[in-house]
Design a protein around this nucleic acid. Sequence first.
DNA 1: CGGTTACTTGATGCGTGTCAATGTTAGTGG
DNA 2: CCACTAACATTGACACGCATCAAGTAACCG
Lengths: 245, 245
Amino acid sequence: MESSIAAHERLVTKLESDSRLSDEDREAVRQLPFTVKDLPRGVDIVRDGDRPAECCLVVSGLVCRYKLLLGGKRQILSFHLAGEIPDLQSLFLKRMDHSLAAITPVRAAFIPHAALRALVGSRPSVAAILWRETLIDAAIFREWIVGLGRRTAMQRVAHLLCELAVRFRAVGLAGDHHYTLPVTQSELGDAVGISNIHVSRVLRDLRDAGLVLVSGGTVTTLNWDGLVELSEFDPDYLHLTRPEP
Amino acid sequence: MESSIAAHERLVTKLESDSRLSDEDREAVRQLPFTVKDLPRGVDIVRDGDRPAECCLVVSGLVCRYKLLLGGKRQILSFHLAGEIPDLQSLFLKRMDHSLAAITPVRAAFIPHAALRALVGSRPSVAAILWRETLIDAAIFREWIVGLGRRTAMQRVAHLLCELAVRFRAVGLAGDHHYTLPVTQSELGDAVGISNIHVSRVLRDLRDAGLVLVSGGTVTTLNWDGLVELSEFDPDYLHLTRPEP
DNA sequence: CGGTTACTTGATGCGTGTCAATGTTAGTGG
DNA sequence: CCACTAACATTGACACGCATCAAGTAACCG
């Protein structure tokens, strides 16, 4: 019961805060069927090649999307916090072209495609909000492309730490100068395209430069402006300001 | 007149081929207002920071999206062929977080946001098709992230050439073993995150390996299977197979 | 308490960037 | 038709960022 309420709350809160929905829209969202599951750290939630029949709403915990190369190398494509639906694209792209994994223990609500499809088919305002979510996803992908293509290892790590700081704060999961990021250095490396060993060196350099401290799953900002300047971080791409009604 | 017909044709053909639309849906698409413009090579169609009031449908030519860094470095985010709408996301994300440029002379049809918004608000089937387009866009971004993060320069170039071969062929713009790609080596480098000079070296190596020949704006495939194997190219991420009705 | 996982540090080498010089091609005007 | 130019492409020399290998430390946990 507890978890069910939380799951619905996440989605409804998100939808309500995002735009002015009619009472009918809200009611339709509330009536979405779903199943809550608790998943241990490390498991694949959906796998590359799967044809899932439901979408996964993150209720709590940290989730990532990734792809594996033939040689065993891994590239993390995105991180997803509570309230997000990382595989919303599976509603329209039947076959998964990547995997979804739990980085921490995760509580997730699974919503059947059929119900979601009916919802977006009959409620254009809800569809617009969800569509917009997938577009912000794509905007973040674009920014990652810029980082991977044109920024140094140190800038990439700094940029990612800035992005996550802003996103964690936006959902109330970050304090003023620190947030919890339960991620290994290997995972960081797989996200920014460098080796785990070099992550260690870069984090040391960032610490020595007095910019940020990453240790024990906690990120502590020492000099936010310096971090922003180093990584050329501009939060516009996150499109966090609410759209005009 | 000629161009007007062509623009409508591109869009209607695309929508019809993508799914079963009702006659009313098709009629609604046909009644979209738009303005056709011919743009010279090199111009920015939309700029980072803009708040456009219309979307750009590529009727002919080659378009790219890109971002500039403070140091003047450029990262190309995507290429767009005839029939695509590269800035469809501006329907829901008001402020552009990147720019859109004409790589070749381009003929484009501009469709007002208001009309598009009305269309997707009243025609869920049309909305679903356009939404799906933006999701495929995102899938391509993901694959680029993998390349930039985890592939060598040679693999990245080979992968891009594979991707474009498949996409050009899908819209009937490629022969069996060659296609026209009017792109400079600097632009290639900006897309795959390497210097223009190294592009030259990589293209020589690809030629010497008997895989592909890039010269004078034409890509000639010498050994498709070898190219696919080298770059680990798997076209699934392009989601070219039509969705089931 | 032994084994596992995560992290750190140093040594070495490769891949790619950068700089500089040269070659090639297409376009332009006399 | 040729001289001139500008843009694009090629090649070599050198430097540097990061990968990789190897060894060692620290924290955790059955």
